[in-house]
Amino acid sequence: MKIKALIVDDEAPARSELRYMLQETSDVEVVGEAANADEAIKLIKALNYDVVFVDIQMQGLTGLQLAEITKELSLPPAVVFVTAYGEYAVKAFELNALDYLVKPFEEKRLVQTIEKVSRYKASLEGLEHKKKIKSGKAELDLLPVQENDKTILISIDNIVYIHAQNERIFVHATGGVYSTSFNLKELESRFSNRGFFRTHRSYLVNIYKAKEIIPMFHGSFILRLSGEIKVPVSRRKASELKSILGM
């Protein structure tokens, strides 16, 4: 599974350049961008990012202050500083920064950073799984669904969205459409902190599958997902979604 990244920089060209470099590696999916630390904190609390690439000198809170905040989270993302200033490196590593990139840097240097992030992600997931086993709360990344007369297990990461229709619940995944005995409220709770968002009373969406937001009347949205699928975002949920996405 790809590394989910957040880019934090108050300069739009810098964000665009880093996004391009990260996407060229094929191992990273840039899920979000933020122009300042305050926006970044909201995004980090809303979705689980594997890594945050952050500038140091920004308006408002600095990148160092952002790192100070994120390290207190129960599942902190890796923090990689991307800056033109080398003099903050010691302080950055005191804050448990995973890496420190000084501009300009070559692609092979970025690849080394991504390898570090991948190892960090694996170790963090291992520790969290051990904690859950110890507490008796281990969870599988699988959902039991019905296909014809049998029950099969599908990966949560393969779910695009879940739809309630005529008192039945349908799970739309990359392998097909399935029914389930869970209701939307149960699934929303089960998938909390997994990137799923209740866009409408009848829809639960995997935000990582979102491709485009299409504005509609009276503040509502249409959310375009993988495969040209379109689901509604109610006016009540639109502002919450905008906050999550840093819009």
Rank of each mutant, 00 (worst) to 15 (best):
L153D: 03
A14L: 12
A12W: 10
L22F: 08
E228G: 08
A67C: 15
G126E: 12
R224S: 09
Y85M: 09
S189H: 13
K116N: 01
L184C: 15
G86H: 11
D141L: 12
N206V: 10
L223R: 05
H172R: 10
L225N: 00
R109G: 14
S123F: 13
N158W: 00
M58E: 01
K103C: 12
S192N: 13
L18P: 06
I56L: 00
H129Q: 14
K211F: 04
E186A: 15
Q57W: 07
A97Y: 05
E87N: 15
I222V: 12
E212V: 05
L124I: 13
A12D: 11
V160W: 07
I213G: 03
N48L: 10
V31M: 11
H200I: 08
S239T: 01
M247F: 10
H218L: 03
D27S: 14
E68A: 08
L225K: 03
M58C: 05
E240R: 03
L18H: 04
F221N: 00
K211Y: 04
S202E: 00
L142C: 13
A97P: 15
G86L: 09
F197P: 00
P76C: 13
G126W: 12
H163C: 07
F221Y: 08
A40T: 00
I213L: 07
V160T: 15
A238E: 04
N96F: 14
Y178C: 04
A34E: 06
E139I: 13
N36K: 02
G86Q: 11
I156A: 15
A40C: 06
